[in-house]
Design a protein around this nucleic acid. Structure first.
Lengths: 207, 207
DNA sequence: CCATATTCGTAGTGATCACTACGTAAATGC
DNA sequence: GCATTTACGTAGTGATCACTACGAATATGG
């Protein structure tokens, strides 16, 4: 992979001294460390070492620890986490949820990246001073559950599911299964372990 | 509940100056704080405040932070966590797992105590220096999964389940559901939310 | 009363935390 | 060349971390 550093085009260069590192590479290293250890347990010194930066470089480029984390979350959702939104676009609600769980079994145990979902595990057990970070990820999880519920409601609306099906309960169940799978991935579960979990979870699908 | 402080009987008293606090009450306060915030995010100063002790009192009575945590885990498993072992003693494997999840829906959201399972949430995202604590709880979780698997194997052995049922896969599924429920409890799920999750999970039971 | 044993309260220890002040280096605009 | 702008490296900041040294206090055993 030949690296062509940022914007070699004819855009006007910024005014001052150019940055001596690749901002996106540094952000990627930060994301992976936050992902593996969680917000609170990831110290600035661990970050600077993983990112190959000095503390002033980190602060100048990313603001502070919290904003760096938020950027890392955004990068995760846009890259690794994209499979989830893609799965929900399948033609039927059942296929959508099934794809979500099957793809999750693969993604949550993918080699070369931390096990489990960053959005689930990245900010558990934060101290009182960083409770806001925990709350931010909680909102992301709530949004994911809402997206699943909306997908199920759509399927119910076009008659894919038995009348009387409770989309909110179903969405909470599959959200819980996904979060359980994340936890089990961090506890060492393999891809095939999680695929069996996904298969059993789908056998609870109504109808 | 009239409190009768420890051992008023005719046992010989210890030699030196008596302790000025109730050790079990202090341990209970520590357990609840660890349970709510997790190992790393619970500082000694937060513990001493919650337990009503000075640091030297805490260290003299409990050793160090890690041993205090281990004692808190033991107390949790013996008290709050006892419902799980009790559920597995039901006459059939299905009743056992169903009771486990139904009782979990109640216990994980019980008023007056932190939401979720201490054994699941108490040591997530520990830093490198306290990774051993995380590993200790991981072993407890593995033991719980093994207990569920054994219960299912017993049921399979007496013909409760269809031949060809995979006890390990089933145990991992229900363990994952339980862990997901713990996570959702901390995210604000209600008892009835979790009861619906439990009911859906049971609809995946083979046969 | 005295020796022994254990806990008490006061007041800190060095290490690490997130974060930054400051002077220098390297780019652009004119 | 020279002002301006931005990033650089060095070297720290006060706060909090888990943990403890030390002498006084309070119990038992004789």
């Amino acid at each position: 992979m030949v690296a062509m550093k940022s914007g070699s085009g004819n855009e006007t260069r910024p005014r001052g001294r150019p940055r001596a590192f690749d901002r996106d590479e540094a952000l990627d290293a930060a994301m992976r460390l936050f992902w593996r250890r969680g917000y609170d347990a990831t110290s600035i010194s661990a970050l600077t070492e993983a990112m190959g930066l000095t503390p002033p470089q980190l602060y100048a480029a990313f603001g502070d620890k919290r904003r760096l984390f938020e950027e890392a979350v955004g990068k995760y959702l846009a890259e690794t986490g994209a499979f989830a939104a893609a799965a929900l676009e399948r033609p039927t609600a059942r296929e959508a949820v099934e794809a979500l769980l099957r793809d999750a079994a693969r993604e949550l145990t993918a080699p070369g990246q931390p096990p489990g979902c960053f959005c689930v595990l990245g900010a558990v057990n934060c101290g009182p001073e960083s409770a806001g970070v925990e709350e931010d990820l909680r909102r992301h999880r709530a949004a994911s559950e809402a997206a699943i519920r909306t997908r199920i409601e759509t399927g119910l609306g076009v008659g894919e599911l038995p009348a009387g099906t409770d989309p909110a309960a179903l969405a909470k169940f599959y959200t819980g299964v996904f979060q359980g799978m994340s936890f089990q991935a961090r506890d060492g579960a393999s891809r095939s372990d999680l695929e069996r979990v996904a298969e059993l979870a789908m056998s609870a699908w109504p109808g």
